[in-house]
Simulated scan of single mutants.
Amino acid sequence: MVWNAVPAAVGIRSVGRFVPGIEISNEELVERFDTSEEWIRTKLGIHTRRVARPGQSTSDLAVGALFDACGRADIAPDTIDLVICCTGTPDHMLPAMAAAVLRKAGLLDIRGFDINAGGCAGGVFALDVGVKYIRSGEYNRVAVVIADTVAQCLDPEDRTGHAIFGDGAGCYLLEACRDERGVGPTVMRTKPELYYTAFTERQDPPEGVPNRFSGPNYMRMDGGGVRDFALDVIPDFAEGVAKAAGTTLDDVDLIISHQANPTLLRRLIRALGQPEEKTVVVADRLGNTSGSSVVLALWEAVESGRLKPGDEVLLVAFGSGMSYGGTVLRWCGPEDFGVGRMEAA
């Protein structure tokens, strides 16, 4: 086998996104549950959320994000070497959702596999997996697609869950880039003692129906536990991530965190000692989209022009497990890709 020389740096060539078209307002939730628009708006900071339409699966959202990333980079999808899908809500337990994405996208000669990185932590964990495949020297272009339809896994009586969660997908398109740019060191941690802070609970099947492995699942979350974890653990962790990248929280240009909800996000940014305008908020319109929330916020930063080549961006994601990870990106421009890579036998 002939492998490419191992690249020293890996960058995000483009970011793709896909959010479903159905929008659920706070007023619609008030009609269904014993709650108020004011409570949702002030407690959570969410005004609307997007949810998949009937028959729209997680892989459908993932394909949309993949095509969006390819379009923004002006590259043909069939030039991708590997597709990695990160999800906690796959279409089926088997086969891998990556196979469904490749099939629906018409990419029949490309390999792919799934990872489950702990729900909302996937925005960083999955990125790290993709970066390592590029650094192996065996793959030149890797698509990391992070998609979830958590809003489809909610207890019909869970008013808070329906107020918080939305469905969405994001995609990182990764390639080798020039030195001094790209994805910095990634720091990852897990606190298994907080396993039940956020998890999906298996429901008993109807009488006489065998429970085939997983059965129906409902998302369960201890909102206070998530809040305390974010405010008690993430500030020191974020400082450590910045230090590992040779920078500081004051020096990074942008901080993009998992969008648990906008109210908590703003409290977290203040706990980091940073101004609110240094972050990006999308959950106010999209809801908590689990692992894709970091990618969707990054997409918005690029699309709005807030992110420019050379800028430093801190990514922090945390989710069930409790798992959490962070990295610093030194953002690339188009000229930072297409770097020469010598062939090595």
Rank of each mutant, 00 (worst) to 15 (best):
V145E: 04
V145F: 02
D148Q: 02
V150A: 15
V150R: 07
V150E: 09
V150D: 03
A151F: 00
A151E: 05
C153T: 15
D155V: 06
P156K: 10
P156E: 12
E157N: 15
D158Q: 11
R159E: 12
R159H: 13
T160L: 12
H162W: 02
F165R: 09
F165K: 12
G168Q: 05
G168H: 03
A169C: 01
G170C: 04
G170R: 00
Y172V: 05
Y172K: 08
L173D: 02
L173P: 00
L174A: 05
C177N: 03
C177I: 02
D179L: 08
E180N: 11
E180H: 14
E180A: 14
R181A: 10
R181V: 05
R181F: 01
G184L: 02
G184I: 02
G184K: 09
G184V: 01
P185G: 06
T186E: 12
T186P: 05
T186Q: 02
T186M: 09
R189D: 01
T190R: 11
T190P: 04
P192E: 10
P192W: 07
E193C: 08
E193L: 12
E193K: 10
L194K: 10
Y196L: 13
F199Y: 15
F199V: 00
T200E: 12
R202D: 09
R202L: 11
R202P: 08
Q203D: 07
D204N: 12
P206R: 13
E207H: 13
G208F: 11
G208S: 04
G208A: 09
G208K: 10
V209G: 09
V209Y: 10
R212E: 14
F213Q: 11
S214I: 13
S214K: 10
G215E: 07
R220L: 07
M221C: 09
M221F: 02
G223N: 05
G224M: 13
V226C: 01
R227C: 08
R227W: 14
